[in-house]
């Protein structure tokens, strides 16, 4: 119990250290530039403590339960024994990795749904749009985008295709979609790309990428192991823009007689 308490205290201290610069900047500007007291100092402080405790508990829980299991599974799913071939044999074709794609997609989907940053942006979007954007719908769209992105990223590592071909094609799709999307959604869609990958997704997805790059013959973990995160931040943009376009199209069609 004491060992655990010490461990938790370290996690809490770590979180405090991470937000120290933020707190310093806010307090500094508040005192020196704005020169007005905070409107509700008590409420703000309580909220800040909630956020701190929340993040510490969240990280601690992930470390205890999900990360070890997720990383273990990522490693197990990419062992030659599980994939059913011997080390000496030539590399199996990319179709042989079926379960890896399914796992990549489902872990991408599930972790994104639990991502606190995405939750924050979705809440804000629902609030400002007056409810015409549902936090839940937005999060599902983003998660589907991440699921597809991670699965495609796994495919890229297995086949060893150059990363930037995919990224450039993805960018071109985003550019074309931007021209045809409702203006209102564009900023939100771009933002959802950046927020999908933080606390929950990054460690699990990185473990999957490095595991794959180590097992698949001819791949270098240093060169091929990275890049999954980039996929996970590109495809949600496409998914959210697509979601808005479909919603707009359905709306237009139902208005016509």
């Amino acid at each position: 119990m004491t060992a655990w308490l010490i461990h938790f205290a370290t996690a809490l201290l770590g979180t405090c250290r991470d937000i120290l610069p933020i707190a310093a900047i806010i307090i500094g500007f508040q005192l020196l530039v704005i020169r007005k007291p905070l409107a509700q100092p008590k409420k703000t402080l309580t909220g800040f403590i909630f956020v701190l405790l929340g993040i510490a508990f969240f990280l601690e829980g992930l470390e205890m339960a999900l990360f070890p299991l997720g990383k273990l599974m990522a490693a197990q799913l990419t062992t030659p024994a599980f994939l059913g071939w011997q080390a000496g044999q030539s590399a199996p074709p990319w179709q042989a990795y079926g379960w890896v794609y399914v796992f990549a997609a489902s872990i991408g989907f599930a972790t994104t749904l639990a991502e606190p940053s995405l939750l924050a942006v979705a809440l804000k979007a629902q609030q400002i749009s007056g409810g015409s954007i549902h936090a839940w719908g937005l999060r599902i769209a983003v998660s589907l985008g991440v699921a597809f992105g991670i699965a495609l990223g796994a495919f890229r590592i297995i086949t060893g295709t150059e990363l930037y071909y995919f990224i450039i094609v993805g960018y071109i799709i985003v550019l074309i979609q931007t021209l045809f999307s409702p203006k209102m959604i564009i900023g939100l869609a771009y933002d959802s790309g950046g927020v999908t990958t933080s606390t929950v997704t990054v460690p699990l997805v990185t473990a999957l990428g490095l595991g794959l790059a180590e097992t698949v013959p001819g791949r270098n973990p240093l060169v091929d192991g990275f890049g999954l995160i980039a996929f996970a931040s590109l495809f949600p943009i496409i998914a959210v823009l697509g979601y808005a376009q479909i919603a707009q199209w359905l709306g237009q069609r139902s208005r016509k007689p």
């Binding site: 909630f50 508990f57 639990a114």
Partner: peptide, 15 residues
Amino acid sequence: FVVLGLTLFVLGLEL
């Protein structure tokens, strides 16, 4: 822990 942490985070966010 994760559930508790996420809850505190969201409440603190709005506060």
